[in-house]
């Protein structure tokens, strides 16, 4: 991806289905955020390098003094990417519902990445508020992608309420700690019928790869790319890692063994 040579991947040898969420299909299983980039040009190039089709945005007040350049839509083409608005920063169900309604009114789609945060230090979800907001928004016709913790029962409740996708965290938002609980994420994936998209906590490419190897349907990240020293190069790495992890899951890994087993024949050795 850098000067002097191109990396090409043998993606044509991977047989996979499209990712389908709420009646929309996507080729890329990597979704990216648009926050915290050093500048808009880097953001645009990173999104392109990531190959992501779903891109998250937040709803905030217009800066009345310099509105023209502050909207992220001046730099993104909504005809080429799928805008997924979030309710980041909302601490109550009522706030999250209000933000979701405002986002839908922008007129792009009726999808929302629902976040109801319960704790400022860890940014962990408020499960009660999340379920309450999800119920209302699903009834209002939203396609709700619910950001939640890695708790199976909450994930099942969100599915029962009609969420279009459930988004358990890998680790806290912006932490870069990677997938802390692969068992729980695998359990959620095994039990749910709606897509499971791991959201938040990825730090580097291996985290994305390990996450996708659990069999989840997709992964969403922001800080891991935006806060990398070279966000565009990291976006490319994340694209490859997501593809690799997915391919490895589909390929089916060998069983783990606690003892060694030779790869070369034990017969035919010299006396």
């Amino acid at each position: 991806m850098r000067e002097g040579g191109r990396v090409t991947t043998a993606v044509e040898s991977i047989q996979d289905n499209l990712l389908e969420i709420g009646g929309r299909t996507f080729q890329s299983r990597l979704m990216v955020g648009t926050g915290k980039y050093p500048d808009m040009d880097t953001m645009v190039r990173a999104i392109e390098a990531s190959g992501a089709e779903v891109v998250t945005v937040a709803v905030r007040r217009v800066n009345l003094d310099r509105s023209k350049e502050s909207s992220v839509l001046h730099f993104l083409d909504p005809s080429k990417i799928f805008l997924l608005s979030n309710t980041a920063g909302c601490y109550t169900a009522a706030d999250a519902i209000r933000y979701a309604r405002l986002a839908r009114e922008a007129g792009f789609n009726d999808f929302v990445k629902l976040e109801v945060i319960g704790d400022e230090e860890t940014l962990l979800p408020d499960v009660a508020g999340l379920l309450e907001a999800a119920k209302v928004l699903v009834q209002e016709g939203f396609k709700v992608l619910a950001y939640t913790n890695e708790d199976l029962v909450t994930a099942l409740r969100l599915e029962d309420l009609g969420c279009a996708a459930v988004m358990p965290l890998a680790s806290p938002i912006g932490s870069g700690l990677g997938l802390l609980n692969p068992f729980s994420v695998r359990t959620i994936k095994r039990r749910l019928h709606v897509p499971v998209i791991v959201d938040a906590g990825v730090g580097t490419a291996s985290d994305a790869c390990v996450t996708m190897e659990q069999g989840v349907d997709g992964i969403l990240m922001n800080t891991a790319i935006a806060a990398a020293q070279d966000p565009v190069a990291m976006a490319a790495a994340m694209r490859l890692a997501t593809i690799a992890g997915r391919a490895a899951f589909l390929a089916g890994r060998m069983p783990r063994r606690e003892v060694a087993m030779p790869s070369s024949p034990t017969k035919g050795m010299l006396d």
Binding site: G33, T34, G35, K36, Y37, M43, T56, V57, A58, V59, R60, R61, V62, L64, S67, S70, S71, V72, L73, L83, S85, N86, A88, R101, L102, A103, E105, A106, G107, I173, G174, A200, L220, M221, N222, T223
Partner: peptide, 27 residues
């Protein structure tokens, strides 16, 4: 929320609270 086609129909009165929002970068 006031939908776009209705913006010309709603008159502002003293003390009204108006929020004007748009999309910004976020995760």
């Amino acid at each position: 929320i006031v939908r776009r086609p209705a913006l010309g129909d709603v008159t502002v009165t003293e003390g009204d609270a108006i929020e004007l929002v748009h999309f910004v970068g976020g995760g």
